[in-house]
Design a protein around this nucleic acid. Structure first.
Lengths: 356, 356
DNA sequence: CTGAAAGCGCTTACAG
DNA sequence: CTGAAAGCGCTTACAG
C-alpha cells in the first residue's frame, strides 16, 4: 500500500506538506495542493488511520458494549448509536456481551486496548472488574439503558414507571388480580427497577406481588419459558404474566403454546420493549415501548461531550404503553378485531433531564 | 496511560526485554519475566494495540459489512461471525449498510483505512466502486450470503433451490395455483436467485410466474407492504405471496391485516429466512431456514485462511423448508392446531463444497 | 539472555 | 508557504 512517503515522492514535496494538504491546513499553496491531489489519485493513496491514531492519540472510534445483539431492542439501539456517531464523524465498534459479564469484560478490555475515544455501555451486571477499571481509568464513558449506581458516569435511559402504572391500570380494568412478572437479573438496574415499578403500581390497587409470582429470568428467551412453566405449575397460576423484555415474552409464548393454552383466554401476557413483530403475534402483544432511537442519539451526544472534556448530560426519557390484545379486551374475552386499540397511550410524564 | 517505557523503568529493564516478556518470547530469564509481571501489575499497564498494529502491520481485526442489522438473519450471522472470530483471536468490526450502496462503500472505506486484516461482505449491490477497489487492492476478502459474480473471492452461502422446490410442492399440494413473489433487488444475487428458483419450481408444475406476480422489494418491510398492496389490487390477486426475506414478510402481514383480510384463508404467505417469531405470528409462518450459524463460522474460517495466504474455501450449505400454517393445511382451510407440522422437511440436497 | 537502535506511517512545533 | 526532525508506542533483527 502506498504511504505518505510515496505520495510525497510522486508530488515532489515533503511529507510534511503532503500531510498538511491532506488535512486541509490553510498554509499550503494551491499549486502544492493540486500536485498532492494528483499524486493521491495516481497512487490510489489512502491515509493509514492506525498511524494517524498513534500520532494524534485519538481513534475517532466509539465502543458500544451491549447486553445482547439478538435482542431487537439492542439491535435498534446499536443502529441509532452508529447513525448518530457517523453524523458526528465517529465509527463505532460493537461488543456483544450476550448477557455474560465475562464476555462483557472481554469486550471492554479489547476496546480499551484499541484506544477507542469513548465507551458506551449497557452493563450486564452490577459492575465487573473490567467495567469498574474502565470507569476509574478516566476513559470517557456513558451508560445507556442500564447503569451502575455509585459510578460517576452519565446515564441515558428511559423511565418506565409511568408506563408500568398505565399497564397495571389496564390490567386491573380488565379484571385481572393475580399478576406475575418475569424479572431480569437483579444485578442489572432494569432487572430491579421493572419489578419495583410493577410492585409499586400493584400496591396502588391494594394488590401484592408474592414471591411465587416473581420469576427469575436473564432477559433471554429460554429463561422466559422456564419461568412461565413454573407459573403454570402453581396451584394458583397468575392471570397475567408481564415479561421484563421482549425475548422473555417470546419464551413465555412458547411455554403457553406448548401447554396448549391460549393468550389471553387462559393467561394474559404483556412485555417490556415493543417490537414490530408484536403487532402480528397471536395475539398481538401489549407492550411498553421505549424511545430507542432517541436514547441512542442522546447517548452518543453525551459521550461526545465527555470526550470533548465537557460534562455530558444524563437524560431520562419516558416509555409508553401500547395496548394490544394479549391481556384481553374491555368487552370480555375474545372480542372482535375492530376493538383493537393500537395507538400508544399518552404518558403524562414529561421528558426529564438531570445531571447526576 | 502507562507505556512500555514506564514498565521498563519500573522493572529496571530495557523496553526490548519487556516487550519480549510480554509476548512470551522464550529467551527471557525467569527473573526478568517476574519483574515485568510485577511492574505491569503495579502500573496497571495494558499494551497499546494501535502502536502494535502499526509496527506489526496486522490489527487482528476482521471487518463485516452486512446489508441490514435490523434483519434478524443478519443479526444472527453477525453474532456467529463474532463468536468464531473471537475463538480464533480476532475482533470484528461491523458495518451496517442498511441496504444502501453508498453506506456500504462508506464502511468498506473506513474499515480499509483502519487496516483490518480481512473483510467479510454481504454486498448490497452488484459491485459498487469501493467494493471492487477493495477486492482488487488485495485485501483478504470473503463474500457471505450474497456475492458479486466475476470477482475472484470465495463465497460462503446457502443454496435455497431444493427448499424452494419443496415449498412449491407444498403450495401446489394445498391447491394453490396463482403464486406470487416479493423479490429482493435485482442487483443482489439473493434478489435474483430466489425468483429464479421459484420460477423454475413453478415450471415443474406447469405454472408460470407472470410479471404482475413479481413484486419488486428491497428486502425491507416497507417494500413488502407496498408490493402486497399492489398484489391485492390486481383483478386476479395471487393465492400465495412468497416474500424473499423475513422483513418483507412482516410488511406483507401488515398490508394483509390493514385490508382486514386473513392468512391463509384470503391469501397465503411464506417467507425466506426463518426466525423465532414466525412460530408465534398469526398464523405461524411457513419459511425457508438457512443454517445461519454454520454460514458465519465457515465464512470466518475461509477468511482466516485467506489472511494466512492460503486459498480459502467456498462453501454452499442447503437451506430447508419449515412448514407451518400460513399457507393453509392439508385438510382444507382453517384446521385444528393438532395438524401443525413444525418439523423441518428433510432436504434431499447434500452439503456442497466447491472452490470457484 | 539483554539492550541499543531502527523503523512502522503519520502529525506538528520549529526554523526559515 | 515549505521542509527537516522529533516522536507517538510498539517489535525485532543485530550485536554482544
Amino acid at each position: 500500500m502506498a504511504s505518505i512517503k510515496d505520495v510525497a515522492a510522486e508530488a515532489g514535496l515533503s511529507v510534511a506538506t503532503v500531510s498538511r494538504a491532506l488535512n486541509g491546513h490553510p498554509s499550503v499553496s494551491p499549486a502544492a495542493r493540486h500536485r498532492v491531489r494528483a499524486a493521491v489519485e495516481a497512487l490510489g493513496y489512502r491515509p493509514n488511520a492506525v498511524a494517524r491514531s498513534l500520532r494524534t492519540d485519538q481513534t475517532r472510534t466509539l465502543g458500544l458494549v451491549i447486553s445482547d445483539v439478538m435482542n431487537p431492542y439492542f439491535t435498534e439501539l446499536a443502529r441509532s448509536v452508529e447513525e448518530e456517531a457517523r453524523a458526528l464523524g465517529y465509527s463505532v465498534v460493537i461488543g456483544n456481551a450476550d448477557e455474560r459479564p465475562d464476555l462483557q469484560d472481554h469486550h471492554v478490555t479489547t476496546l480499551l486496548d484499541r484506544r477507542i475515544d469513548g465507551l458506551l455501555v449497557s452493563p450486564t451486571d452490577g459492575g465487573s472488574p473490567g467495567m469498574l477499571d474502565a470507569a476509574r481509568a478516566g476513559t470517557p464513558m456513558v451508560f445507556v439503558d442500564r447503569w451502575i449506581p455509585g459510578v460517576d458516569v452519565p446515564v441515558v435511559r428511559s423511565d418506565g414507571r409511568a408506563a408500568v402504572r398505565d399497564l397495571v391500570a389496564h390490567l386491573h380494568g380488565l379484571g385481572h388480580r393475580r399478576l406475575a412478572i418475569i424479572a431480569g437479573p437483579a444485578a442489572t438496574t432494569t432487572g430491579r427497577e421493572r419489578v419495583d415499578a410493577f410492585r409499586e403500581a400493584l400496591g396502588a390497587y391494594g394488590l401484592s406481588l408474592p414471591g411465587a409470582y416473581i420469576g427469575q429470568g436473564d432477559f433471554q428467551a429460554e429463561s422466559g419459558r422456564r419461568a412461565t412453566e413454573r407459573f403454570l405449575d402453581l396451584p394458583e397460576p397468575p392471570d397475567v404474566v408481564f415479561a421484563a423484555d421482549n425475548l422473555m415474552a417470546l419464551g413465555a409464548l412458547d411455554a403457553v403454546r406448548a401447554r396448549g393454552l391460549r393468550v389471553p383466554e387462559d393467561i394474559a401476557l404483556a412485555a417490556f420493549d415493543d417490537i414490530p413483530w408484536f403487532v402480528h403475534t397471536d395475539p398481538p402483544v401489549t407492550a411498553i415501548a421505549q424511545p430507542t432511537r432517541d436514547l441512542g442519539q442522546a447517548a452518543v451526544r453525551a459521550l461526545v461531550e465527555r470526550i470533548a472534556g465537557r460534562a455530558g448530560e444524563s437524560v431520562t426519557l419516558p416509555a409508553r404503553l401500547v395496548v394490544r390484545r394479549s391481556c384481553g379486551e374491555p368487552g370480555g374475552s375474545g372480542g372482535s378485531p375492530s376493538s383493537v386499540r393500537n395507538r400508544p397511550t399518552e404518558s403524562p410524564s414529561p421528558v426529564q433531564r438531570s445531571t447526576p
